[in-house]
Amino acid sequence: MNIVFDFGGVVFRWHPPSFLARLWPHRVADAAQGALVAAQFFENYGGDWGAFDQGLIDADTVIQRIALRTGWPAAEVAQVVAAVPDELQLQVDTAALIAELKQAGHRLFYLSNMPEPYADHLERAHPLQQWFESGVFSGRVKHSKPRAEIFQIASERFGLAPETCVFLDDHPANIEAAKTLGWQALLFTTAGQARLDLVQLMR
């Protein structure tokens, strides 16, 4: 199988409500309140953050835009932006799944909404080229999920027809977009569930 992994929330830890609760205890009392603050900060990965994801603006610009839009001090917004790389910790269970799939002979790729500075960090911190044959970061191709363009770019880069790819992502909108374009796609919740879903798909 040709299996394509999302990164944030799948291969690497990414849960903005708890992230902000830890980082901004003076603003966020718990993960429930963190969800509300995260919706303001990241705008569901549209708006300012979406432009950052797509490599259309840099970190300084996204900081200034979020501060202007929300009224939060730019220094506090900058704290969040700077803390993201440390938040993207490898998910041990998913790493084990990747190793299993690779050992079994499956071809592995990635397709991630990721601003360029964070993509650079992940490449420095982890042996992505050993784990995956190829991959696409949104910040480098100027398109992001769930738009059709990034799926088309990925298909072309991987040299694979969409229907031969199985996409794992934790966002329903990205799963639906992939399916609409002819990809096989599975909503990721845990590595254990993904393993079961993949086994079922292989039957």
Rank of each mutant, 00 (worst) to 15 (best):
residue 97 L to Y: 01
residue 149 E to T: 14
residue 81 V to I: 15
residue 150 I to A: 00
residue 91 Q to Y: 04
residue 73 P to T: 04
residue 106 H to G: 03
residue 120 D to Q: 14
residue 148 A to I: 08
residue 112 S to N: 13
residue 132 F to W: 07
residue 129 Q to C: 05
residue 164 T to C: 07
residue 167 F to D: 04
residue 130 Q to E: 09
residue 72 W to I: 11
residue 83 A to L: 06
residue 133 E to R: 12
residue 110 Y to V: 04
residue 91 Q to L: 12
residue 92 V to W: 05
residue 101 L to G: 05
residue 164 T to M: 11
residue 109 F to P: 00
residue 98 I to V: 15
residue 120 D to V: 14
residue 115 P to S: 04
residue 126 H to T: 01
residue 113 N to Q: 00
residue 151 F to K: 05
residue 92 V to E: 13
residue 141 V to I: 15
residue 89 Q to P: 00
residue 115 P to N: 00
residue 95 A to K: 12
residue 165 C to Y: 02
residue 132 F to L: 06
residue 74 A to D: 12
residue 167 F to A: 07
residue 130 Q to H: 09
residue 93 D to P: 01
residue 120 D to N: 12
residue 105 G to K: 04
residue 95 A to Y: 10
residue 172 P to N: 01
residue 94 T to S: 07
residue 117 P to Y: 00
residue 150 I to C: 00
residue 133 E to S: 11
residue 103 Q to V: 06
residue 91 Q to P: 04
residue 175 I to M: 00
residue 104 A to V: 05
residue 142 K to I: 05
residue 101 L to W: 02
residue 173 A to F: 08
residue 108 L to E: 02
residue 76 E to N: 11
residue 174 N to Y: 09
residue 171 H to G: 04
residue 161 A to W: 07
residue 151 F to E: 05
residue 95 A to W: 11
residue 86 D to F: 10
residue 91 Q to F: 05
residue 111 L to F: 03
residue 148 A to T: 13
residue 94 T to H: 02
residue 121 H to D: 14
residue 77 V to E: 07
residue 86 D to L: 10
residue 133 E to C: 07
residue 85 P to Q: 02
residue 76 E to T: 13
residue 132 F to T: 03
residue 93 D to T: 09
residue 173 A to N: 13
residue 96 A to I: 09
residue 115 P to M: 01
residue 79 Q to M: 12
residue 109 F to V: 01
residue 92 V to C: 06
residue 137 F to N: 03
residue 161 A to C: 10
residue 140 R to L: 05
